[in-house]
Design a protein around this nucleic acid. Structure first.
Lengths: 233, 233
DNA sequence: TGTGACAAATAAGTCTGACTTTTTGTGCCT
DNA sequence: AGGCACAAAAAGTCAGACTTATTTGTCACA
């Protein structure tokens, strides 16, 4: 996923970013650029670039004569895909996963409703294709293939909504879905009911039935939330 | 609002960021760091820091032997508050405002529902206070004071939801509300119906009536959408 | 004519050292 | 106690030299 190690400063971020988002430095902690540069064995210019990136994510704040101050969690740019990845890779992964699933439950029903108005013929076809792919891989422990189609399905819905803010959540939703398959307990085949819902949703979008599309999507996301409650009570 | 001019690289971003988000450089355009540094009359190190920030926002991509490539709009981190501000300040402000209002219409009803479960006593009190403030300033062209309470109201709802992803949209919603008052045509006092809805919503949250809270919030956001349709058909 | 390897050109990337600027704390003086 | 001047500290800025990856063009060879 993404692009690890695009330059020295990226290498630094790969360890400093997760450390900060994991809460290893309590808010208000002060880091000094020179010390960090020494610690990571990079030049000050490289370290400064890394700090600038952290600053643009609102993870830290750089102040003259003081140093680099770690900001409180409430100020972080939690929609930054990089921040999301770091947090999903860290200790509060379950908490983060829940937050994102709740976000999905708010966004996706509305996106589906909009998709019934804005989806192109190609997008409708793609949707049906994805749904069929899910059906085809819903039995016999073909979880990996199922996941591919599931991620594609939701991405198409979000894109077809025609709202750029929704569309950009495609990566996030994909990450959540992938997380469920890869990290959580997921030995069994997906629930048949969920598969059916996706097929019906593709139908509803194709037919332009906004209410039905919204209702079906709500059912899907409620299912995802309940699944979370079972796994992490 | 935010922090303009936090260093030289910030000054550079203040003009380069808006230029890129305004679409002045078509996707695929190649910028050269050295030329930019000359143009802005800063050293290369400062220019590099600015580029790193743009890169972390996925506005550009830096490639060796090639230069700094402007990414397609679809790749931008459109949830980055800085990007949102730049775009709201630019030419496609109406389009951006609509995207954000649709986002509100998806998020806020769910946030309000959650708030009925998670809001603290203080937050309920604050909510009522804001609603009263809105009532008190709803007549006689006290738009500025009305706005302050309106922004605070929605911020409390989002925070009280207990979901950090929702909470972080407080700034965005505030920006949208402020935009409506300051930039759009807004000579008249707010619609009495809207004011009433806020008062009732504060009530519903206090009483823990989830369905009513969600329904009322939906009414508020639908109102905001209709208002947009009237102003920019 | 096409293809492969090799060389040159290019722009980003990195490092270092010197210098500037802002902020904070301290301690002296009233 | 209050305020003012001075000194220290750390980020910020700059310039220049050097490194490295990548692209592109060329030339020989099949």
């Amino acid at each position: 996923m993404s692009t690890p190690g695009r330059g020295l400063h990226g290498r630094v971020l790969d360890t400093l970013g997760p450390a900060i988002t994991a809460g290893e430095y309590p808010p208000g902690s002060v880091l000094r650029t020179d010390e960090l540069a020494q610690h990571f064995e990079v030049s000050r210019s490289v370290m400064r670039e890394a700090v600038r990136v952290l600053e643009s994510m609102h993870l830290v704040e750089s102040r003259r004569r003081v140093g680099v101050i770690v900001r409180a969690k409430a100020e972080w740019n939690v929609y930054d895909p990089q921040v999301i990845r770091w947090r999903l890779a860290g200790a509060d992964r379950p908490h983060q996963l829940r937050s994102l699933t709740v976000l999905r439950s708010a966004i996706e029903p509305v996106a589906a409703r909009l998709a019934t108005r804005n989806a192109t013929a190609e997008q409708c076809a793609e949707l049906t294709e994805c749904a069929l792919g899910m059906v085809a891989n819903s039995r016999g422990h073909r979880l990996e293939q199922y996941l591919v189609h599931d991620m594609a399905f939701h991405r198409v819905i979000l894109t077809a909504s025609g709202n750029e803010m929704f569309a950009r959540l495609g990566d996030v939703v994909a990450e959540v879905l992938a997380g469920r398959t890869h990290h959580e307990v997921m030995f069994e085949d997906p629930a048949p009911a969920a598969v059916t819902l996706h097929v019906q949703l593709a139908e509803a979008v194709r037919e332009g039935d906004a209410d039905r599309a919204e209702r079906l999507t709500r059912a899907i996301t409620v299912g995802a939330l309940e699944e979370l409650d079972v796994l992490a009570p």
